[in-house]
């Protein structure tokens, strides 16, 4: 239970980082508690973002166990789900994000080779 807070803490830090950039990436990760899948997904996401979008992204982690009413807004079924809110169009990636290539395709990010 305490580790859940850790994730939220990270979230807030990331949010604070940079707001100025116009091509800001807003990402939302939906999870259900501290399941292994959730932790893996968050770790994978962070890694990809650091590599590809350093400094111009924010990650918001939503724990549906805490806020179940938020699930309907983004039509969440599968968990974990990563939602790219910005830039539009909205994209969804489900799974623990272990397949980096697919995540990049899903996020419409061309790998920086």
């Amino acid at each position: 239970m305490k580790s859940k807070n850790d994730i939220s803490d990270i979230k807030t830090k990331k949010e604070k980082q940079s707001k100025a950039a116009k091509d800001m990436w807003v990402l939302r990760l939906y999870v259900a508690g501290q399941s292994p899948k959730a932790i893996t997904a968050f770790a994978n996401l962070k890694k990809i973002c650091e590599e590809q979008l350093k400094g111009k992204y924010s990650i918001e982690v939503i724990d549906l166990l805490k806020n179940p009413q938020l699930g309907a807004d983004d039509q969440i079924l599968a968990l974990p789900t990563l939602v790219r809110k910005l830039p539009v169009p909205v994209r969804k990636i489900i799974g623990d994000l272990s397949n980096t290539e697919r995540v990049l395709v899903g996020l419409d990010l061309l790998p920086m080779s």
Binding site: A32, A78, R102
Partner: peptide, 22 residues
């Protein structure tokens, strides 16, 4: 519950816990 195949990319393990929670 709306699900659009084109919007969804599958990467690795997942479950439908989201549906359960909703």
């Amino acid at each position: 519950v709306h699900i659009e195949r084109s919007e969804i990319e599958e990467t690795g393990e997942y479950d439908l816990e989201g549906l359960f929670i909703r």
